[in-house]
Write a protein that binds this DNA or RNA. Structure first.
Length: 814
RNA sequence: GCCGAAGUGGCGGAAUGGUAGACGCGUUCGACUCAAAAUCGAAUAUCGCAAGGUGUGUGGGUUCAAGUCCCACCUUCGGCACCA
């Protein structure tokens, strides 16, 4: 018998599999399974051992599904547009086209080294014009539906990355990429009305088989509040008749002692002609200055600040006149940007009222006999001191009061429209041109893709213009508008040709990843992003595996994008990912995140070289529960290597036929059952431990039959595809083990004919007792009464009660 | 502050309400070796010579029986955070 030489085995079979297209997707079964990894964004550093954990898991799962007779789609590709790749290129002074291609090649090599069963014939790359042609096409459909629009609102601007950012790209008011303080900058933007889909994105979460915490993250991000919009008439204010406010607590309207508006709203009044006094202008200015740095993502809660405008509003329920304040804690982007302030039942309003000595009027009693003057509380309760509404519950009063004052019940969301333009080079160009009056036109389908020009200079300008704006020969195009209102290009000297200019912003990093999973289904289709019949066969993704950090960006964007495609009738399901599983991080041996900064990165190339890909795979699946973070341990990994060596060495005991001991037979069938069930549940660690247990049994056997060993090889094949393939062929098999059929267990071989009962006396374990399986309860009791320990503790007295759990345990209550 | 997840040996972790600690790492002892590594065998929650006692973050509760269910609390991690 040869020694286990992982290097030669792994190289040999990887080459064979590739030559034979073993992992080419089949379409011959009526059962399909689409299992997908979140595709990587190739950085310059290559993979570390933490990255492949999810890929190995989908690999194991897909291999089992394949052996179970499914048509399995398990593809891979690369997401490579956007800031990180561009920054990397800038730092290394290469063109991103070049560096990206290099990084992709390196990633691919590393992935192949692990023996993953991807169908590389379907590989995609978001930076490939053949791919982004369809990103552009889809965005164009949004534009035509009015879902993508030009906006001039101030947006988050990162001065260091020199680009506008979406709300999702911020972390505590800082740029998620570089940590710079984000500024507010008025900039022309393409924006997508994702908020139109807020409600569907929220309610459809219910039908998804996703981990609850990920759904919760999305719910929080969408941030729906149900409340009322109510108009408060403004008194002798010629510029606006009334002030519309949003509140979730219409039941507290009798406690409204002032109004508060955002500085943006105040500014818009100034624009309309309102001339506030000096003091108001000063404070307004101060608030504006502070807000320029930070808008809706404050790092710290600032001190409340505001000023009385001199304007009064009338409370619609009781006609009371209350002052209107400008206040720094009012967010323009939430609700209507104006509130009725109820200091008794809102802590922020309370703080403000205290500072400016405004009245505090309690109108909700927590419990019936509560003292109404016991300070601020925001809980629902019983309405008091509120005319005809007194005595109602908060929830009833909300509806009745809103109705009475002619308000409407409505919802507002924390989710913002998606700022969908970057002032950078490395992204998809927009399929848009402008005429001399800045009227925008979509370009005709025949013009797609609009290819990103190859340039020498792609440094961001920082002016709010993309570097593309400097490339005159790309920006200026000649053509005309056809009968569909779309641009088609013409030669410059054509009589109908007019000058147009291209949109020079590019799409954000998240564009391609919002739909890439559809492209794998039909990667090479030139006439459509996916063939409708194929889409029906493979879609939706049955199982999606990736990092939890994508919960509020990629996974929201993709769900939105997919729903849009569904609405325009080009896909057949309204949710892209039926089941989602997140991967737990692999930490470094020191417990920190693996990072170049800490010098604690473990390189998979070295691990594969020294221990083999199979060992790495088995170890990563054995480390612990899949969704939990675990620290890497090289010595622990050696255990997985030993397991494979012992498994390999078992072949020396294999004979054509021999009897297997009863114990081992039972272990075998239990293992078949458990491995299948556990892989299905992504409980790889327990699947492997069961196989280890089985191996421990088989090692005690003098000989092992070929038939038994074959079963073991099949069970291990998804985890350790190379060594099992080698052993499989050593046994004389000619087809690959990876297209063999998944083993089945015998129900009758799962248990022995005897069982060990636990004998408890007063709930404490005192003895065990071997009895025939499925023995009558009365006979179990008879047997227990013969037990020495029973006699010792119970004696001859008749116990109060004897509980028998069949085939498991007896508990005697004295 | 709000929301979510989780607390079990020296470590990673197992346990449909039914014998807590499977499996692996580590450690100790033994075999092999001149020796070491590797490998193989045995032991390994804890106190106790033993009988036995104690043990799944803390305190209560339900139950014949609780790591598992209920209530309160503590700690850690993750997310959101002036969202009216």
């Amino acid at each position: 018998m040869e020694l286990y030489n992982h290097n030669s085995i792994e190289k040999k079979w990887q080459q064979k599999w590739e030559e034979e297209f073993l992992y080419r997707t089949t379409e011959k079964s009526n059962k399909k399974f689409y299992i997908l990894d979140m595709f990587p964004y190739p950085s310059g550093d290559g993979l570390h051992v933490g990255h492949p954990k999810g890929y190995i898991a989908t690999d194991v799962y897909s291999r089992m599904k394949k052996m179970q007779g499914y048509d399995v789609l398990h593809p891979m590709g690369f997401d490579a547009f956007g800031l990180p790749a561009e920054q990397y290129a800038l730092n290394n002074k290469v063109n991103p086209n070049v560096s990206t291609a290099k990084n992709v090649a390196r990633y691919k090599e590393q992935l192949k080294m692990l023996g993953l069963n991807y169908d590389w014939e379907r590989e995609i790359n978001t930076t490939d014009p053949k791919f982004y042609k369809w990103t552009q096409w889809m965005w164009k459909q949004m534009y035509k539906k009015g879902l993508a629009y030009e906006s001039y609102d101030p947006i988050n601007w990162c001065p260091s990355c020199k680009t506008g950012l979406a709300n999702e790209d911020l972390e505590n008011g800082q740029c998620e990429r570089c940590g710079s303080e984000v500024e507010k900058k008025p900039l022309r933007q393409w924006t997508i009305r994702i908020t139109d889909y807020a409600d569907r994105l929220l309610t459809d979460l219910d039908k998804l088989d996703w981990e609850p915490h990920i759904k919760e993250l999305q719910r929080n991000w969408i941030g729906k509040s149900e409340g009322s919009e109510i108009d408060f008439p403004l008194i002798s204010f010629p510029y606006q008749k009334s002030l519309r406010i949003f509140t979730t607590r219409a039941d507290t309207i009798y406690g409204a002692t002032f109004m508060a508006i955002s500085h943006e709203l105040a500014s818009s009044w100034v624009e309309k002609g309102w001339k506030p006094n000096e003091e108001v202008l000063t404070v307004l200015n101060e608030i504006q200055e502070e807000a320029k740095k930070q808008d809706f993502s404050f790092k710290e809660v600032q001190e409340k600040k505001g000023v009385y405008t001199g304007i009064k509003a009338r409370n619609p329920v009781n006609g009371e006149e209350i002052p209107v304040y400008i206040a720094n804690y009012i967010l323009a982007g939430y609700g209507t940007g104006a509130i009725m302030a109820v200091p008794a039942h809102d802590e922020r309003d309370f703080e403000f009222a205290q500072k400016y000595s405004l009245p505090i009027q309690c109108v909700i009693q927590k419990k019936e006999h509560d003292n109404p003057d016991n300070g601020v509380h925001h809980e629902d309760g019983v309405v008091i001191d509120s005319s005809e509404y007194t005595g109602l519950s908060s929830s009833d009063a909300r509806i009745k009061i809103t109705e009475k004052v002619g308000g409407k019940l409505t919802s507002t969301y924390k989710l913002k429209d998606w700022v969908f333009a970057r002032q950078r080079y490395w992204g998809e160009p927009f399929p848009i041109v402008f005429d001399e009056n800045h009227v925008s036109y979509a370009v005709a389908d025949s013009e797609l893709p609009i290819v990103l020009p190859m340039v020498d200079e792609y440094e961001p300008t920082g002016t709010g213009e993309s570097p593309l704006a400097n490339i005159k020969e790309w920006v200026e195009v000649y053509g005309c508008i056809n009968e569909d209102g779309e641009f088609i290009s013409l030669p410059k000297d054509d009589s109908k040709a007019k000058l147009f200019t291209r949109e020079t912003n590019t799409m954000p990093q998240w564009a391609g990843s919002s739909w890439y999973y559809l492209r794998y289904i039909d990667s090479h289709n030139e006439t459509s992003f996916v063939d409708a019949v194929k889409e029906k066969k493979w879609s939706p993704v049955d199982f999606y595996v990736g990092g939890a950090e994508h919960a509020t960006r990629h996974l929201i964007y993709a769900r939105f994008w997919h729903k849009f495609l569904y609405d325009i009738g080009v896909v057949s399901y309204d949710e892209p990912f039926t089941k989602l599983q997140t991967v737990g991080l692999i930490m470094a041996e020191d417990g920190r995140k693996m990072s170049k900064r800490w010098g604690n990165v473990v390189n998979p190339d070295e691990v594969v070289m020294q221990y083999g890909a199979d060992t790495l795979r088995v170890y990563e699946m054995f480390m612990g529960p899949f969704d939990q973070a675990v620290a890497w341990s090289t010595s622990s990994m050696a255990g997985s290597r030993r397991f494979l060596e012992r498994f390999f060495a078992l072949q020396s005991k294999v004979v054509n036929s021999c009897e297997l001991s009863l114990e081992a037979t039972i272990a075998l069938h239990q293992t078949i059952k458990k491995v299948g069930e556990d892989i299905e549940l992504f409980k790889f660690n327990t699947a492997i431990s069961k196989m280890m247990t089985l191996l421990n049994f088989l090692e005690k056997e003098p000989l092992v039959s070929r038939e038994v060993y074959i079963i073991c090889i099949k069970l291990l094949a998804p985890f350790a595809p190379h060594v099992t393939e080698e052993l499989w062929h050593t046994l004389g098999e000619t087809e690959s083990v990876h297209v063999a059929s998944w083993p089945k267990y015998n129900e009758s071989s799962l248990f022995a004919s005897t069982v060990t009962y636990a004998i408890q006396i007063e709930g404490k374990l005192r003895a065990t007792c071997v009895l025939p399986r499925d023995l009558d309860e009365s006979r179990v009791i008879l047997a227990v009464k013969e037990n020495d320990q029973y006699k010792k503790y119970v004696g001859t007295f008749e116990p109060k009660k004897i509980i028998v759990i069949k085939n498991k345990l007896v508990n005697v209550v004295i």
